[in-house]
Amino acid sequence: MLIGDKIKSIRELKNYTQEYIADQLGITQAGYSKIEKGKTSLSLEKLQQLALILELPLENIIHFESQRYFNQDSSIAKGPAVNSDKNFELVIRLYEDKIELLEKLLGKTDQELQFYKENLAKH
């Protein structure tokens, strides 16, 4: 698995858009897309920035291999893998981060709905 594929998988697990990551890196979405596709070289500095944005240690990004745990058809764990406990913990952490993000978004949506309800009640 190429580093761009790993970054893309982690980004998707965290429910981040390419636009969000690109903005955090100070580049265009198209430029970021080239990183994920392996069309642009990724410097160590950019990789470290990505690790901060994705809130993961750099080594977890480098060693991330989702296909060791989930096959594309049924999401069932595959056979034994090197460092499987470490990778499994990473996958769990990514899903927990995604759940936390979704809960925050739901809370924000609830606040906005309450705001609109209150404003409609005044009119």
Rank of each mutant, 00 (worst) to 15 (best):
T109M: 14
L54Q: 04
N87T: 07
E59V: 09
I53L: 01
K39H: 09
L113S: 02
L50H: 01
K98T: 14
L102M: 12
I61G: 05
E103I: 03
N119R: 06
K46D: 05
L101R: 09
K86Q: 14
K108F: 08
K122I: 09
G79F: 10
A77Y: 11
K86E: 07
E45S: 10
L106F: 03
S41Y: 10
N119I: 07
Q72V: 06
K86D: 09
Q114D: 05
I61L: 00
N87F: 03
A77G: 08
E96V: 11
I92F: 08
N60P: 00
R68T: 14
L52R: 07
Q111W: 03
L50C: 01
L44M: 08
A121T: 15
I76M: 12
L101P: 12
E96A: 13
E112F: 05
F64V: 02
I62R: 01
E45M: 08
L105R: 05
P57V: 02
A121Y: 13
G107R: 10
R68S: 10
F64P: 07
V91A: 03
A51Y: 00
Q111V: 07
Q114R: 06
K39S: 12
K98L: 07
S75M: 14
L113W: 01
S43T: 13
I99W: 06
I53T: 00
L47P: 01
K39I: 10
A51V: 00
I76Y: 11
I53P: 11
L120M: 08
F70H: 04
L47E: 00
D73N: 09
S43A: 04
L52T: 11
Q111K: 15
T40G: 10
L50M: 03
Q49T: 02
L50P: 02
L58G: 03
L102Q: 12
